[in-house]
Design a protein around this nucleic acid. Sequence first.
DNA 1: ATCCAGGCCCGAT
DNA 2: ATCGGGCATGGA
Length: 294
Amino acid sequence: MKYTQENGNIILKDYDSFIISQTLECGQCFNFNKLGEEDYIVTAHKKALHIYQSGDAIVFEDTSINEFETIWLNYFDLNRDYNEIKKLLADEDEILKGAVEYAPGIRIINQEFFQCLISFIISQNNRIPMIKKVVYNISKKYGEYIRTVNGEDYYSFPEPKRLFGLDGEEYKDCKAGFRGKYIADAVTKYVTDELEIESFKSLSTEELRKRLISINGVGPKVADCVMLFSLKRSDAFPTDVWVKRIMSYFYFGGQDTPIKKIHEFADEKFGDYSGFAQQYLFNYARQFKIGTDK
DNA sequence: ATCCAGGCCCGAT
DNA sequence: ATCGGGCATGGA
């Protein structure tokens, strides 16, 4: 991987495993807008990044070396060798090989913790387009205006303090539905430091999971997503309906298997690579509707 | 129209 | 401990 600055843009070349559409649209994040083929706006870190493919390069528009190195390099996990991960998983079995080859351009994004937490609280019993809308509505109502691109306004995700004290009902304007009270509890626990975020790094994944589940509206699945997508816990294995289906289908003879058994299996088989395996499998299962009657 | 969505809470066993 | 109904909202 190498990157240079040209005309105010960062040009990324000689990278491995990075297809913008696959990384953004594999279900791990909701803070993006598609402008065209391999052409997106991503809102994070109070910025609206225009990122697109140009030949064999990826362009981070209007970005300095400093901004690239302090924000986007880590955000898109560009220091990690995904060829190594993909090879390891593909060698595991034919199923993973297929899942990896189907979307070889997925990278696990390192999202901002607060936005990720709220996003996945919203995700429960919801659909991805709707999750994106609610995240956008909250940003528009409580965040700060960043800029307009192609007639579309972009807003930063609000600071926790900005949301502190809001009643759960307030989020109904943003179409959060019954999840408003959950958002309110997450905000309260964040701002009052009930979560003790500073201590996260010293906790085991299991301990951290329990801490996150103390939030009303955060269960095992949401906690695992938050740990994987914003706290670099690649040993987490978020198991939603799709992952449950594909795991049952391929590894348990088609028998509907309890999540606890699936977790034990994933721990043993994937270990610290569980999160990566999960994302390839989730994407694969969802695209082909594996385990459903369709 | 009825069903369901990257689940979780809560009350009943 | 485990199970099932209910839940806001909107698209199929």
